[in-house]
Amino acid sequence: MEQATVKWFNAEKGFGFIERENGDDVFVHFSAIQGDGFKSLDEGQAVTFDVEEGQRGPQAANVQKA
């Protein structure tokens, strides 16, 4: 698992990007966020996640709020 920071997340559209420590951004979809209830992330929030290869490149999976 990697630890990184949420760059931005649009709760209405259900997706955003996580900024990795190496500077690369990773796409995150609300369905990858672990937990119950409304799944959203806040800008600047610390998260841990795995990286999977998606249809359009790397994307976050198993996202957990740190």
Rank of each mutant, 00 (worst) to 15 (best):
R20L: 08
G37K: 06
V47G: 00
E53L: 14
W8A: 02
H29T: 00
Q55K: 14
F9C: 07
D42G: 10
F17Q: 01
V51P: 04
D24H: 12
D24V: 13
F30I: 07
T48C: 12
A32L: 00
W8F: 07
N22S: 11
E21Y: 11
A61Q: 10
G14A: 05
S40K: 11
L41F: 05
Q64W: 11
K65M: 11
H29Q: 03
V51Q: 05
L41Q: 05
F17S: 00
A32G: 07
E43V: 15
E52M: 13
D50T: 15
F27M: 01
A32M: 05
Q59N: 05
K39H: 07
D50G: 09
E43F: 12
E12A: 13
S31N: 07
A61P: 01
I33D: 01
V47R: 00
F38L: 09
E52L: 12
G23I: 05
G44N: 07
Q45D: 13
F49H: 04
P58W: 10
I18C: 07
A11Q: 11
T48S: 10
W8Q: 04
T48G: 04
G44E: 03
T5Q: 08
F38R: 08
E2P: 08
E43K: 15
D36C: 14
F15C: 08
F15V: 05
H29F: 08
R20I: 08
A4Y: 05
N62A: 04
M1G: 13
E53C: 14
V28S: 00
Q59V: 10
D42V: 15
F17K: 01
F15Q: 02
F27K: 02
M1P: 13
A61E: 06
F30W: 15
F15G: 00
K39V: 08
A4T: 03
V47M: 01
V51N: 03
D25H: 14
K7H: 06
T5M: 09
F38N: 08
G16T: 01
V63T: 03
E52S: 10
I33W: 01
F30T: 06
G44L: 02
F27Q: 03
I18Q: 03
A61H: 09
A4W: 05
G23A: 09
K7V: 05
Q3T: 14
V6N: 02
K7W: 02
M1W: 11
G35Q: 09
A11T: 12
F49N: 01
I18V: 05
I33E: 01
E53G: 07
E12S: 13
F27D: 01
T48H: 09
W8K: 02
K39N: 07
T48A: 07
F15W: 15
A32K: 08
V63K: 00
V63S: 02
F17P: 01
A60W: 02
S31Q: 06
D36W: 10
E12M: 12
G54A: 06
L41S: 01
Q55I: 14
G23S: 07
N10W: 09
F17Y: 06
E19Y: 13
E43Y: 13
S31E: 04
G44M: 04
N22G: 11
D25V: 13
Q55S: 14
F30L: 05
